[in-house]
């Protein structure tokens, strides 16, 4: 397609100055995708972009600090880059950003559920329809129904900063009513139902820590408190209590930093809607401090600062 070709040309021109370029390529079936590390021009043939290519590539940047790296970036990923810059985890002059206008990111899990888990042989992307072929059958799915939760709160499809921008095609194609997100679902519950909701979901958690490993802002690497014996924040028992504790740790350690890229939820092999927790915290932070992470490189994250008079925080009675 024209925009992929344009992206190839842009990367090929810049490649001699770069150690590697982060992009996407197709995965083991037409639905899946995998990150592509481009080091030579021959790799460019495998490059692909589109609604199926969903990983947040910015997650690789902190570990590549010190090397000259190019990265293909959509709107939401660029917020991650801003946040990483804000925390001095990467240097701007070491990163070359190839911007693309996002066309929406498909939640593969939703598609697989819609086709009842049948092996997918072909996927065709229409204007706002996804036509999925499984052997004999074809399913026409509304794009809006199978997007990732983060797409429903999208703050902009084009990256907020870029060095090169693909001009061909832009804009998300999804139209129509938004299906309810996990957070909407939680909103409609009372406290006991919510507690039971998490108990049910956490019971399925296999403690693989994929959510943490995929998170672009979990930068403690081997020093994560989840694996520390002293302090012993979480123990080894296989209970919803310990698993929920870990999710609370993740949510609070990224509070005011999380850009809602949704990698935690995407990486979860059990499909646990853990993004909802972070979205709830972010909504509160927006309400209290009028702050959104990854929007402005010069601003200070709200939990790293304070005001002597907090107009938005009311004192409460113990009664």
């Amino acid at each position: 397609m024209a925009h992929t070709q344009e992206l190839r040309t842009l990367i090929a021109r810049e490649l001699p100055n770069l150690d590697l370029v982060l992009a996407w390529t197709g995965g083991f079936d037409p639905l899946s995708s995998t990150p592509l590390f481009i080091t030579t021009e021959a790799d460019l043939d495998r490059l692909a972009v589109g609604p199926m290519h969903v990983q947040n590539l910015a997650a690789y940047l902190p570990s590549l600090k010190g090397r000259k790296v190019g990265i293909v970036t959509r709107g939401c990923d660029s917020r991650t880059i801003t946040e990483l810059l804000q925390e001095n985890l990467i240097n701007r002059d070491e990163v070359v950003i190839f911007g693309i206008g996002c066309t929406g990111a498909v939640n593969i899990r939703k598609v697989r559920t819609a086709v009842n888990g049948a092996p997918v042989t072909d996927v065709e992307i229409g204007d706002d329809v996804l036509t999925v072929t499984t052997g004999e059958e074809t399913h026409a799915l509304r794009l809006q129904d199978v997007l990732m939760d983060k797409c429903y709160t999208c703050a902009g499809q084009a990256p907020r900063m870029h060095d090169h921008m693909v001009s061909e095609r832009s804009g998300c194609l999804a139209t129509g009513e938004t299906p309810p997100s996990s957070l909407d679902l939680l909103e409609g519950m009372d406290a006991r139902e919510r507690f039971a909701f998490w108990e049910g979901h956490m019971d399925r958690c296999i403690r693989c820590y994929a959510c943490r490993n995929a998170c672009p802002l979990c930068v403690c690497k081997d020093s994560c408190v989840a694996q520390s014996r002293d302090p012993h924040w979480v123990d080894q028992s296989d209970t919803p209590r310990e698993k929920l504790m870990f999710q609370a740790i993740h949510a609070l350690h990224t509070a005011g930093r999380c850009t809602e890229c949704g990698e935690c939820e995407r990486a979860c092999p059990m499909g646990i809607p853990i993004l909802a927790m972070k979205q709830a915290l972010n909504r509160r932070i927006k309400h209290l401090f009028d702050y959104e992470a990854g929007m402005d490189q010069e601003s200070t994250p709200p939990l790293f600062m304070f005001r002597q008079q907090e107009e938005t925080i009311k004192e409460r009675d113990a009664r």
Binding site: L186, M189, A191, R192, E193, R194, F195, A196, F197, W198, L244, A248, A251, L252, A255, G256, A276, M277, A280, L281, R283, R284, I285, L288, F289, P302, L303, F306, R307, Q308, E310, I313
Partner: peptide, 24 residues
């Protein structure tokens, strides 16, 4: 000097987390 100013912000955010976790 400033410990409780930071605490105020953190604890205010914590209320939301408890809420979404299902702890009143």
């Amino acid at each position: 000097t400033a410990g409780n100013f930071y605490a105020r912000r953190r604890l205010e955010i914590l209320r939301e987390l408890l809420d979404v976790m299902g702890i009143q």
